[in-house]
Design a protein around this nucleic acid. Sequence first.
RNA 1: UGCGGUGUGGAGCAGCCCGGUAGCUCGCCAGGCUCAUAACCUGGAGGUCACAGGUUCAAAUCCUGUCGCCGCAACCA
Length: 516
Amino acid sequence: MNAPRFYLTTAIDYPNSRPHIGTAFEKLGADVQARYRRMQGYDVVFLMGTDENTVKVSKRAAELGMEVQAYCDDMARQFREVWDALGISYDIFIQTSHARHRDCCRKFIQKVYDNGHIYKGPYEGWYCDGCEEFKTDKQHAENDGKCPNHKTPLTRRSEQCYFFRLSAFADRLLDHYRRHPEFVQPDSRRNELISLIENEGLKDINISRYNQSWGIRIPFDEDYTIYVWFDALLTYVTGIGYGDDRATYDHLWPADIQFIGKDITRFHCALWPAMLWAAGEESPRQVFGHGFVYFDGEKMAKTLGNIVEPMDVITKFSAQAFRYYFMRECPFPSDGDFSWKRFFEVYNADLANNLGNLFSRMTRLAAKNHGGVLPGTAGLKPNGIVANVAEIVARVQGHVEACRYHQALQTIWLEVLNPANKYVEEMKPWSLFKTDPAASARVLYELADVLRLVSIVLKPFMPEASNTIYTAFNFAPAWDAVRYEDAMQWPERQDDLRLGEALATEGVKPLFPRID
RNA sequence: UGCGGUGUGGAGCAGCCCGGUAGCUCGCCAGGCUCAUAACCUGGAGGUCACAGGUUCAAAUCCUGUCGCCGCAACCA
């Protein structure tokens, strides 16, 4: 029970459309981190959810003729289906329309109000009657004074609303960025943010909406609802007990990493810590703004009609392949691209021909030539095909911990799998078997050890495929107890290395069948 | 205007911070092998590192300028 805790979150999504591969990219990056930390013995709590208290969601429900809550619950179910299919190992899924979040959110805003960081004042801006919302000056300027959606003229309107005193936190924020360079990651995002604040400053922001039927009521003025950001960000704390379970909250907060898209860095790295401070709470330890996924080089957008959904890929291939492609091909800290052509190439080259084929040739040789048992290998220490395993594993670990997932995977393929394939070719265990079966068995033993190593370091990335590889043998320790460090060591085993019964008798199925 | 990113053999990228034989994956060509998912291994062709100046014994790498492409309103991560 003394395990260190690790609390991480992803952005919570607007449920006015189904998740696409870009949304999945973020969850995947967070999931790899969560799975890695669990392996390393952390007490991990992984939170995600849907952000439902927006006018757009209520409108979308109305379009479909649905009651808003029913619509939200159904969308949340659809999101979770996708995340489950991808193997996203979240622990908590928050819906902002649910009572617990609402009640705790009201407590939070009341606290900020009591602390004097919220005031009432006039807000004046360009208003669209059709959208029932204010547009920015920039939108007004760029659309000839018309609403970009309705094409009707915007009118100047002023109303009383509640402001959060964000401007008062500018200096403290800048100081925080300097004192904790790890807070905003990657570095390029931090630099952008600092220059933004230094050049443009921070303005107090309107956190209320007047006379809306859907949303969370402001406790000190029930005619208003809380504007989405001030509500949505709070899921990160209400989900772990802010307002109703202080013990759990104190145990888990501040979050270790919060994953978000690079476009909302501002909200998470400026507004969010300021809100927390205003309520007397701590800022999260790190906010990681990941990159975007493009499709055939273009930004995905509903209006372009080029949205790819995760299920399109998963049902054709597998969640494992999906996970590999995005973690290998799209650098998490910057942008990446998805195309079917590239997907086929990467799948065949890395998964089918390299990893999958190595697994097949090793296990089939073991089954065919040695009856699935490699004699004389009990307690035997492998020589090691790869010389500097400890150094390589440490390097992979460093990449994973810094969310450089693509580099972690590249390292595994370049430094472990490629040499292993070359080794098979050099040693030719199939012909060696004819003259010296013991030597052949020894070669296969070395290969098995590489597969063991690879399955361990790949566990956070492809949990299922790794499991299949690891449990094809009688490796120790048990799969659920495996840590990264085990990849560096030779497990003590009292019996000879053998294939699992199913593999030995029923034969080996391709792990990743080639795509033709 | 401005801000940020980017321009490296046919494609996708690394290298640039901390100057010193241009590297990786895919594709292509030739050969080898045949245990394996027609896979794997070896060799090869192919780049004046966007362009022009400058610093230096030496620049893809540092400095200056020019040009091209992408993102910075909304749906949206």
